[in-house]
């Protein structure tokens, strides 16, 4: 039953996609101007060209040429999409890892101690809603390195969901399980790793998944600001080159990579989820 539904959904998705491409194609077709019009005038209006937006076929060709050679490097402003993605992923990975190293232990502490929770809560509430890009000037001034600054921005944006989810997950571990650990005289460290961590793992991983989603959103903007390398810079650079096909290609790439990252974390979450 389920597989039939999946199949029908897949067919519908495909139909929507085909319809979308067809409309796109029709909308970007070169329009023949009415015969007899002044050719000079027509040229001024853009000749036989339409809106100037690329056609699906042009995008197809761009995707092909970019993917055929993803790792070329011809100077600072002309690198393959693979290299740009690698730069972005490395920044996101590094910032995310640092955030996890801070947020998970701190979240444990906050979740286990109502005192620390109350003490830190005002700071978290103020810092959490700040757009991570607002930190950029301060980061650039203090760190004096554009690449590390963008890593810092990733760190600061991915720390909050992980921190809050870890604290919440740890604080809501069932009393019964903690009582079991107490009656078995389980030590603090063993309790943290064998009882609290597995109990809170699904919540923690959900937080990591949210963080990763935000980090991937933010890296594009951050790289547009600091420039140099990365998928965000690629978008901005192609805009400066007035190459809309490459911009659209980059948009698609960002979407697909973001989806894959989310899938990985979704899979990891399922791995640690338990049924009660």
């Amino acid at each position: 039953m389920r597989s039939v539904l999946n199949l029908r959904a897949a067919i519908l998705s495909l139909l929507i996609f085909v319809l979308f491409v067809a409309i796109w194609h029709a909308a970007t077709l070169p329009v023949e101007k009415a015969a007899g019009a002044d050719p000079e005038y027509a040229k001024l209006l853009g000749g036989g060209k339409s809106s100037g937006l690329p056609t699906p076929a042009m995008i197809g060709r761009t995707i092909w040429t970019n993917l055929a050679d993803p790792f070329y490097d011809r100077g600072p402003n002309d690198k393959g999409i693979g290299i740009q993605l690698a730069f972005s992923m490395a920044r996101v990975g590094l910032g995310f890892l640092c955030a996890a190293l801070v947020a998970i232990p701190l979240g444990f502490l906050i979740g286990m101690s109502p005192l620390i929770y109350r003490a830190l809560n005002p700071f978290i509430q103020v810092l959490k809603p700040i757009s991570p890009l607002a930190w950029m000037p301060l980061a650039l001034y203090t760190i004096k390195d554009a690449a590390i600054s963008s890593v810092f921005v990733i760190f600061i944006c991915s720390v909050w969901p992980m921190l809050i989810n870890t604290a919440y997950g740890v604080a809501s571990v069932k009393r019964d399980w903690l009582n079991v650990a107490k009656t078995l005289e389980v030590g603090a460290l063993r309790k943290a790793f064998r009882v609290i961590l597995p109990a809170a793992a699904p919540t923690i991983l959900t937080g990591m998944r949210i963080s990763m989603g935000i980090a991937w959103l933010v890296i594009v903007a951050a790289e547009m600001l600091v420039g140099g390398t990365g998928i965000g810079y690629f978008v901005w650079n192609e805009w400066n080159n007035l190459s809309l096909t490459n911009v659209i290609f980059a948009i698609l790439t960002i979407g697909i990579v973001g989806m894959l990252l989310d899938l990985v974390f979704g899979w990891l979450t399922r791995l640690v989820t338990y049924q009660e």
């Binding site: 009582n179 079991v180 009656t183 078995l184 005289e185 597995p198 793992a201 338990y274």
Partner: peptide, 30 residues
């Protein structure tokens, strides 16, 4: 609390991420 007094909880209080044996093993290892 002490290991000298074993408790059977009203709501069984098993750890759902561990198998039946691992639940017992957790206690034995303690």
């Amino acid at each position: 609390p002490s290991l000298d007094r074993g408790v059977v909880f009203q709501g069984h209080a098993l750890m759902p991420w561990l198998s039946a044996k691992k639940n017992v093993e957790f206690a034995v290892r303690s």
